[in-house]
Amino acid sequence: MSRPGGAARGGAGMRLRGLTRKEFLQIVRDPSSIAIAFLMPIFLLVLFGYGVSLDAEHVPVAVVVEAPSPDSADFVAALRGSSSFSPRDMAGMAEAERALLLGEVRGIIRLRADFARRLRRPDGAAIQVIVDGVDANTARLVLGYAEGAWGTWLAARAAASGQTLTRPADLQARIWFNSELKSRNYLVPGLVAIIMTLIGALLTALVMAREWERGTMEALMVTPASMTEVLLGKLAAYFTLGTGGMLLTVGLAVWLFEVPLRGSFWLLWGCSSLFLLASLGMGLTISTLARSQFVAGEIAIIATFLPAFLLSGFIFDIGSMPPVVQAITHVVVARYFVAIVQTLFLAGDVWSVILPNAAALAVMAAIFLAITWKKSRKRLD
């Protein structure tokens, strides 16, 4: 004779499997869910991997040589050999300034008429660099590249003549973690957080709201299934969908864009699971507040996607933000996951970074799921 408790547990298990299967069927029949989970990652990766770059390469600059000489020709040749600049010869400063005003060049490098003569004096020659400061970030890069090209040329010239270039300090640069200095290696890992936010928070909020609008939620309420079982069914389905999106993103990042994954893949998967649970919790929380797809979508974009895009460290460095904004970023879930995923990709298993951020993700996941469970009841009000 079977025990009632065992039958109840068996019935709960069957209901949970049935609810999970229902969610998978809804996902398969809904093209928008498939598009957000699998087509959107590809679109964002191609956009940021190929179309967005924080590097300044082949920057057009005007070169004004007032008195051509072998020395000036050697320096200009060094500029042409650099991948940072695309020099354009100008007849004079008037033409160069006109090109700068029209936006045709981003800077001017001027070699004065006494360049060759002063180059052999003890105090040395100087070059004039004028940059377009409208885009302050690019202006700083152009100025830094020009100073670097000038210093490299002087050092090569001194070495060729058997002399020692006297400098106040000899700087030896050593680049850790992203030795190629490619912004793609920095941006693409952060896209994992953005994509999982879309799948976890935005998609879940829209799907729950859609069920309220279509009346299928009311149909679920008259079944023996509890709201806990309904929520678990949705979590299981969209957790699987989000994991698929994560695997697709990581695979494309490593094999298509050749971003190094120096840390443990299984550690990445575990931290991604924590972040996905937090994102799903946010989406389900939003769905308890808004039963309209339009309202749920607006709230999800404002409360999850935009903070993940702007305040997580994905593009903008948190340390350079004002103190008030830095304090606000502590409530942005994506902040912690972006720190983890960029560390795992570029630096490796740095536990002093991973453990605190993973603990924050676990706490936030527990908070949002607890709010969802508390607010969800089998009632229509």
Rank of each mutant, 00 (worst) to 15 (best):
V222S: 10
W150T: 11
A8S: 12
V188T: 00
W150I: 11
A225L: 12
L25H: 07
A173Q: 03
L231T: 15
G107A: 09
G162I: 12
L79A: 01
A253F: 06
L191V: 04
V333F: 05
G103E: 01
W153N: 06
N178P: 02
I36A: 08
G283A: 08
G190P: 05
W269S: 02
A156K: 10
I302V: 15
A237D: 02
A296R: 09
L206P: 02
Y145C: 03
E180T: 03
G81K: 09
G92E: 15
S179K: 02
E229N: 09
L202F: 09
T164L: 09
R21L: 10
A94K: 14
M364R: 04
Y186F: 11
V250K: 07
D74P: 00
E57L: 11
G263T: 14
P323M: 12
I301M: 10
P322V: 01
A201P: 07
A169R: 04
D381Q: 05
S183N: 00
Y186L: 11
F305Y: 15
A113F: 08
I109M: 07
L187N: 11
H58N: 13
T166F: 05
D170Q: 01
I328F: 08
T216I: 06
G348N: 14
E211K: 03
A290Q: 04
S53V: 09
L280C: 13
P322A: 03
P224G: 14
Q326M: 07
V64G: 02
G81W: 06
M93T: 15
A359P: 06
L235M: 07
G144R: 13
M196W: 03
M282D: 12
S272W: 01
L141M: 09
V142N: 07
I27P: 04
L369I: 07
I36R: 05
L45G: 01
V324G: 00
A334F: 03
G11D: 10
A159N: 14
L369D: 06
C271R: 09
G190Q: 07
L206T: 05
R214M: 02
V59C: 05
R80D: 10
F177K: 01
P307N: 12
A8K: 07
S279D: 14
I315Q: 12
P41L: 09
I130P: 01
E180W: 00
P87S: 13
V142G: 05
E218Q: 03
R98S: 10
A78S: 13
D71M: 01
I299M: 14
I109S: 06
G215N: 01
M217A: 09
M90S: 11
V333A: 11
G319A: 11
M90F: 15
H58K: 15
N357V: 12
K22F: 09
A370R: 06
I367V: 15
W150P: 00
G107R: 07
G348F: 05
L119E: 04
G297W: 05
A116T: 08
G319W: 02
